[in-house]
Design a protein around this nucleic acid. Structure first.
Lengths: 221, 221
DNA sequence: AAGGACATGTGAAAGACGCTTACATCAAAA
DNA sequence: TTTTGATGTAAGCGTCTTTCACATGTCCTT
């Protein structure tokens, strides 16, 4: 609620207020504008020209940096996955103090990200176009999933030796499905229609869900 | 792949092929066209005019039946929730032969619907606008959730008497989150970016996930 | 420091498309 | 038959997309 358009900050060469011919840092400004617009109307709720206008440049300018609208959304999603992976990594913290506690920490981090960056999360999971054509995006999403995968491995390692060892990949997919289901259904952007009032916070819901699931695997909690 | 546009069938008054001035059954034709377009490009991937074209009428015609694009998508979603609720109800089958088996049956029905009607499912859960303004939609979604809710109650009733009885609402939300997470991440429309290859079918993944969760609750399976 | 290559943004224009207003058509009731 | 309300059309207006030639600024070379 302060700036009508993004201040150009390359280092600090062109002054703010758009007094120079060149913007100075248009790619960043476009990504930032896209995030605002996605937050307001979803990943499909804005046009390329609108992003240009929000960044204070002509409709043709974005084409110098992104082939089309999808490429811009893909960049938003890629950055989202990078940040997401980094935050999950921090939450996982090498599995300390113990795998279960670290997994719960990941759950908090998962929902915290979905809550704090709903626009990024929407771009990441509701982009509306396949990732194949955008290099780096699949890689980034893989990095995020890898944290859950590692957490699942650790959880499986820590099980009481009695039963059959469950496949870690399956466990990771289950953990992810619960987290994404809760984030998608109960957190964030007004876009989600079936949202309903919860008897508890989404965080508590996820923590309880993961704990029950892990106990079902044979975890000694 | 047979009809280029929907045949007008009010009862059978105007002939097919669009020889009369009036369409005859435009609302139905619009809903059908919207389903096709949603299946192709997602709930936000088409315009009102496009629906009109697909139904073989002028761009202004749909306004006679739906206030705007959202109202059309809302009607698609409402019908989707009605059908969804009905199919879950059949799968639940009063909890027979036993609650666990009936719940697994619901899981199959859940994913079967998401697989068979990806357009409906997308309209139901990725509409991109709040449900509040569309009467009947919230009611229909409530009917669908009520089945899961009842299943959760039965599951809680069937637990070995040892531990604390978990809140049925929480259990229902967990079951729903897993199912939606799997459907959203691994089933259906190319729109979902982060889709990845699974080591097993989505159905098997959901069945395993629910069973592990129920065992975590104390279910004697 | 001068000159030139490259990157970046502008302005305009063509084409397509979507949305809306005034009008046309039809069915059923009076 | 006439009237009335419901339903669909045609055409105009505005916006978006995309591409051109051109303007501006930066940086590298000499």
């Amino acid at each position: 609620m302060s700036f009508s358009s993004d201040a150009p900050r390359p280092g600090d060469a062109p002054r703010p207020g758009r007094e120079s011919y060149h913007h100075g840092n248009l790619p960043e400004a476009l990504v930032a504008a896209a995030l605002r617009l996605i937050a307001a109307s979803g990943p499909a709720g804005f046009t390329f020209a609108e992003v240009a206008r929000a960044a204070g440049v002509s409709p043709a300018a974005p084409y110098r940096h992104f082939r089309d609208r999808n490429a811009l959304v893909a960049e938003v999603a890629r950055r989202g996955f990078e940040a997401f992976a980094a935050e999950l990594e921090v939450a996982w913290n090498g599995g300390r103090p113990d795998p279960i506690a670290a997994i719960e920490s990941c759950g908090k981090a998962y929902l915290a990200f979905a809550r704090r960056e709903p626009a990024s999360y929407a771009a990441m999971f509701e982009a509306g176009f396949p990732f194949d054509e955008h290099a780096g995006l699949l890689v980034a999403s893989e990095r995020a999933f890898a944290v859950l995968r590692r957490a699942a491995e650790a959880a499986c390692d820590g099980l009481a030796g009695g039963g059959v060892r469950p496949p870690a990949l399956m466990v990771a997919l289950h953990l992810w499905a619960v987290a994404h289901g809760i984030a998608s259904l109960f957190v964030g952007h007004g876009g989600n229609p079936a949202r309903r009032k919860l008897p508890m916070s989404a965080e508590a819901l996820l923590e309880a869900g993961w704990l029950v699931y892990l106990r079902g695997l044979g975890s000694p909690t």
